[in-house]
Design a protein around this nucleic acid. Structure first.
Length: 507
RNA sequence: GGUCCAUUCGUCUAGUGGUUAGGACGUCAGGUUUUCAUCCUGGUAACAGGGGUUCGAUUCCCCUAUGGACUACCA
């Protein structure tokens, strides 16, 4: 590694919502930049006009912002290399394509897409693959096979053309990747990739190399799907006479079960989000943010998927990730995404939050249910149930009985605890409860337990039935904390309702 | 099909030419909680297979298998 200033970029294509693999790529770039006092750039690669999806760019920016990934230079932030949207840099690429043509490393090709399609299907029917490259290029319609007059005439007439890279013929290309080490590929297996399209836009390969060079990118950290085109990119740097950045190809994220890489549809099929945020357009998809994940947990989970610090630490703040992150500790093989572990990460962060904060996050959900507790009252509820939840969105199902009296009663508990003598027991309990004053959790516990002792009742029977009538099931925090919160009146009301309901049901 | 990449418990992974192959998630069992959950303790479970190299390979090399990516005027 040289002492070159670290500058990295995340360069998504705005063709839809970013999925978590993309967020992880952005995260690793960001961590690497921060760790090395470098710069993190967001560049929008919108050279494919046909796949452009409006809203996608905004989504990408919002997703990174939510995750806490801060952009130093980009479409909104600006920077010394503006613009950062490739469609606005269109004029730049033309010049570099021309440069390559002058050098003889690229050429014009006039073959139409239809002609190429026919060739490809022909070859396929013979079980072969058509390769526009050193073996076939002299049989095609391009500036290598026609006179310069004819080329000029075609160009002058406005005929559509593309610019192709003229791949070296039989040469071993040596290159290396920070994660995978040294590799070698022979150019005879490579083809003459299109660099410049007939619509006047560059392809990824050209635009990417030109921009990375112009923007002085020091390290290219991207998904493994780009590994096969790395030799081309290395060659392109060589043709231009530029110093190439260092490369790191990240392993892919795989489906939780079955085969293949994680795809945008897996979330819906398997019941977990594959997107950071909700995507409202077209085929809607849910996001981690809307599912109630804390961004810190989301980032922590993603960071550990394919990277590890070499220690047993698993919970990291962003600052700690920055401190610990090195590319050489990124793994080589693909990681299966595990929704269970993602939930576990969120639970860790949930449990670290203060009760006050959890209550304030929970308040809107309670209000939406039609209840308007005071801040203090809700804090008391959250304090009692927080340890059994991992998400703010779990809190309601753990605490609904504070707000809503039961309408049904758990059959299993009934079967076990309810018998002929139960109605009389509950009536007696009602009287005991009526006498409680003040009606605090501590005082009611003391009085009820005294009453049980004095009357020789079975503690388990009384308390379980009591809970059943208050909660409706065998769940929830300490019973006396619950009745202390709902108050004497509500407690008596639930006991009476339950008694009426069950006494009738039994008779 | 071709090219390239990968392969340690079910999953994420640590690790080493000689280790009881470690941790986490999940799971199972016990304890705590007169409920449920939490929590605590413990258990289960892995070096893909075959050849080498070596006194010794999970570790180094080769082959096979399996998985993955790429193979567009998409990125």
């Amino acid at each position: 590694m040289t002492d070159r200033k670290v500058r990295v970029r995340f360069a998504p294509s705005p063709t839809g919502p970013l999925h978590i693999g993309g967020v992880r790529t952005a995260l690793y770039n960001y961590l690497f930049a921060r760790k090395n006092n470098g710069v993190f750039i967001l560049r929008i690669e919108d050279t494919d006009q046909t796949r452009y999806v409006s809203g996608a760019e905004e989504y990408i920016i919002e997703a990174l912002e939510w995750a806490g990934i801060k952009i130093d230079e980009g479409v909104r932030e600006g920077g010394p290399h503006s613009p950062y949207r490739q469609s606005e840099r269109k004029d730049i690429y033309r010049h570099y394509a021309d440069l390559l043509i002058e050098k003889g490393d690229a050429y014009y090709a006039f073959d139409t897409q239809e002609e190429l399609e026919i060739l490809r299907t022909e070859h396929e029917s013979r079980g072969e693959t058509f390769n526009y490259g050193c073996i076939t290029r002299m049989g095609m319609c391009n500036s290598l096979t026609m006179s310069s007059e004819e080329v000029d005439a075609r160009l002058g007439s406005g005929e559509h053309y593309v610019v192709r890279y003229r791949m070296a013929e039989h040469e071993d290309i040596f290159f290396s990747d920070i994660i995978r080490g040294d590799m070698v590929v022979n150019t005879s297996t490579l083809d003459d990739k299109v660099l410049f399209k007939s619509d006047g836009m560059p392809t990824y390969h050209l635009a990417n190399i030109v921009d990375d060079h112009l923007m002085d990118i020091s390290h290219v950290i991207r998904g493994e799907e780009w590994l096969p085109s790395l030799p081309l990119h290395v060659l392109l740097y060589r043709s231009f006479g530029w110093i190439s950045p260092q490369f790191a190809h990240l392993p892919l994220l795989l489906k939780p079960t079955g085969k293949g890489k994680l795809s945008k549809r897996d979330g819906d099929k398997m019941g977990f989000p594959v997107f950071p945020l909700y995507w409202p357009y077209g085929e809607t998809a849910r996001g981690y943010r809307e599912d109630g994940y804390f961004p810190e947990a989301f980032v922590n989970m993603l960071a550990l998927l394919g990277w590890n610090p070499g220690t047993e630490q698993e919970i990291f703040t962003m600052d700690e990730l920055v401190e610990a992150f090195t590319i050489d500790r990124v793994g080589k093989s693909g990681s299966r995404f595990d929704p269970e572990k993602a939930r576990w990460f969120n639970t860790q962060y949930f449990q670290m939050r203060s009760t006050e904060e959890l209550a304030s996050l929970f308040m809107p959900l309670v209000n939406a249910k039609g209840f308007l507790p005071s801040d203090d009252d809700l804090i008391r509820v959250v304090a009692l149930v927080r340890e059994r939840a991992g998400f703010v969105t779990d809190l309601w199902k753990e605490s609904d009985f504070f707000f809503v009296a039961p309408e049904t009663y758990d059959q299993e508990v009934l079967r076990k605890r309810w018998n002929e003598s139960s109605p009389a027991l509950i009536r007696a309990l009602l009287d005991a409860v009526k006498s409680i004053d003040p009606f605090t959790a501590e005082n009611s516990e003391r009085i009820v337990k005294d009453w049980i002792g004095v009357n020789g009742h079975n503690t388990g029977t009384v308390l379980n039935l009591f809970r059943l009538l208050i909660v409706g099931a065998s769940r929830g925090p300490h019973l006396f904390d619950i009745i202390g919160w709902i108050g004497k009146q509500e407690t008596l009301r639930r006991l009476e309702n339950g008694l009426n309901h069950l006494a009738q049901g039994k008779s």
